[in-house]
Amino acid sequence: MAKQVTAFVKLQCPGGQATPAPPVGPALGAHGVNIGQFVQRFNDMTKDKRGLMIPVIITVYNDRSFELKIKSPPAAVLLKIAAKIPHEKKKGGDVIPADSKKGGKYKGFSVTMAQVRQIAQDKLVDLNARDLDHAARIIAGTARSMGLTVNE
């Protein structure tokens, strides 16, 4: 009898640093997946992307086995790294200013078109783009919506 898919679980975990703590433990424990085995396999597969948030899709089968599909980091994260935006820490009681709901949180920072094309090349398999130029336009649009300036 063939294996049947019982669930698809989508998570974002830090590359090379996943732990059984939430959100990984509860999400996978509900489907009977061996959490320790997942953490070990995920960390081995993403050890070269240490610290980046890596999306992963876990396909869970009826015999409690699973498959991992590692995606590329979100475009916004890669753009922040390219623009050298400092890492920000949020405190629990911070009040969000009313004007921050508009786009453009990172005004004053910029990326070059070469950096945009490199990010597009890295994300090409995960984007719904017909070629590299189209993917670069998608990434440039993400940069503009973040408030970054795209320089030629």
Score class of each variant (00 low, 15 high):
R64P: 00
T142R: 08
M45T: 11
R50N: 01
A83F: 05
K101S: 08
F66G: 07
V116W: 01
M146C: 06
V56C: 02
V24W: 00
R50V: 09
L124M: 15
V56W: 01
D48H: 14
Q121T: 15
N62F: 03
I58E: 01
R137T: 11
P73T: 04
K47P: 00
I57K: 14
A98C: 03
G92I: 10
V60N: 03
G92D: 13
P73Q: 07
Q37W: 07
V125D: 13
G141N: 14
T19M: 02
I138E: 10
A76L: 06
V56E: 03
V95I: 15
M146R: 05
I138M: 13
K80N: 06
K49G: 03
K71Q: 15
I96P: 02
A98Y: 11
K80Q: 15
A83R: 10
S145G: 14
K91C: 05
H87E: 15
D122G: 02
V24P: 03
I85L: 07
Q118C: 00
V9K: 04
K3G: 14
H134Y: 01
A140E: 11
D44N: 14
D94H: 11
N128Q: 14
L68N: 08
V150C: 12
G36T: 09
V111W: 04
H134C: 06
R117T: 15
P55Y: 13
G141D: 09
H31Y: 14
I119F: 10
D94I: 09
E67V: 04
S145K: 15
E152K: 15
P14R: 12
K91H: 10
G16Y: 06
S110E: 12
L127D: 01
Q12F: 04
R50W: 00
R50S: 13
A120E: 04
R137Q: 15
A21D: 14
A76E: 15
V111H: 12
V60F: 07
G32H: 13
R41Y: 03
Q17S: 01
K3A: 12
M146T: 08
F38K: 09
V116A: 08
Q115T: 00
A18V: 02
R117Y: 10
D133V: 00
V111N: 07
A83M: 10
L148Q: 07
V116G: 12
L127H: 04
T46A: 01
R64Q: 15
K90T: 10
N62W: 04
A18F: 04
P55T: 14
P55C: 12
T142M: 05
G108K: 08
G92M: 11
V77I: 03
A120I: 02
K47V: 09
A120P: 06
R41G: 02
I81C: 05
A114I: 05
D131T: 00
F66V: 01
A136H: 01
S72M: 08
T142L: 00
K102L: 11
R130D: 07
Q40T: 13
Q12H: 08
I139C: 06
V150S: 10
S145D: 13
